[in-house]
């Protein structure tokens, strides 16, 4: 029987103080069972309850260079170990990236957010991860570094499936880079769960760029409806370059609900998720459009 009380296995624990040290360790143990520890709010639960073999655990939280948040007019660069609760307190996130702000706020309770990180949420690659749809609609990129170099990968391309990403064992995510959204854009996040602090039945983020009464560009991402966060591309297509009206948003929402591939699980049913997706997409579209400065007629 699984036990949430015990960390039964033995492993070697490292808390390097520089990024270089961390990368050297990862390189050294790349062919062994090595894991990165950030907030530990996913990893520790898994270590206790699943049969997960770990020989080396590398804690990133002691590395000063991963704790920084840089802002300029190009956008935002968030260090890998910045706790979510710090992000939710930053004005810039609340103002410029409301979908991310709302996504973070919807997560767990404050105790968890004091520990949890963005890369932890992404690398954990749960289909229900609440920061993933917002990061995807903002076209966020991950700076992935290793002893041998670095690469920038969009969050969208980073994820492959349930718990699966493209990261290699000698690599780590050092930064989350979010470009500055254009001024005529608006975004919003929405989530439905069983109780207030809970994993989503569905979550979603929408970003719209406005040009007068027309929607110039759109990104719609839904979570917990497929093996990974899903972009409703045909729904986006219905919006792009079109005059925005209530009827159109209703149509887009219907389309989005058709694109998802939900399942029945302990949290909800596929049938309900489809109903929910339509309602939530429609409401969130309206909100994002308003935030982009748009008005709705008809």
């Amino acid at each position: 029987m699984s036990t949430s009380r015990l960390l039964t296995q033995e492993f070697e624990y490292f808390a390097p103080h520089t990024l270089k040290e961390a990368l050297d360790l990862l390189y050294k143990y790349k062919d062994e069972e090595v894991k990165i520890l950030a907030g530990g709010t996913d990893l520790l639960v898994k270590m206790k309850t699943l049969d997960m073999k770990i020989d080396y655990l590398i804690n990133l939280k002691e590395i000063p260079e991963l704790k920084a948040v840089e802002t300029n007019n190009q956008g935002l660069k968030i260090g890998a170990t910045v706790p979510l609760s710090q992000l939710e307190r930053r004005e810039i996130i609340k103002e410029k990236y409301p979908a991310l702000y709302e996504g973070i706020k919807s997560m767990a309770a404050i105790a968890i957010r004091n520990m949890a990180t963005l890369p932890g949420n992404i690398c954990n690659a749960s289909p229900a991860g609440d920061t993933i749809p917002p990061l995807m609609v903002y076209e966020a990129q991950l700076r992935i570094v290793s002893k041998e170099g670095e690469r920038l990968v969009p969050v969208e391309d980073f994820l492959r499936g349930v718990g699966e990403t493209i990261i290699r064992k000698e690599e780590l995510v050092s930064q989350v880079i979010i470009p500055a959204p254009p001024s005529n854009s608006g975004s919003a996040f929405s989530k439905k769960s069983r109780v207030k602090a809970d994993i989503a039945k569905i979550n979603l983020a929408i970003w719209l760029e406005r040009e007068g009464k027309t929607c110039k560009d759109a990104r719609i991402v839904l979570g917990s409806v497929f093996i990974k966060a899903l972009r409703a591309k045909r729904a986006e297509g219905l919006l792009k370059g079109e005059m925005v009206s209530k009827e159109l948003l209703t149509q887009v929402a219907r389309q989005a609900a058709e694109e998802i591939k939900p399942i029945d699980d302990v949290r909800s049913t596929a049938e309900y998720r489809t109903t929910l997706a339509r309602v939530m997409v429609e409401d969130t579209l309206k909100l994002a459009w308003e935030r982009a400065g748009g008005e709705l007629e008809g």
């Binding site: 309770a109 109780v195 207030k196 602090a197 809970d198």
Partner: peptide, 22 residues
């Protein structure tokens, strides 16, 4: 939730109770 005697809700991430916020 029990399916043929197997509990599908063995922890508080599946067995949901109201939280203070609810």
């Amino acid at each position: 939730v029990m399916e043929k005697g197997v509990t599908l809700t063995p922890s508080f991430s599946e067995y949901i109770i109201p939280t203070a916020a609810d």
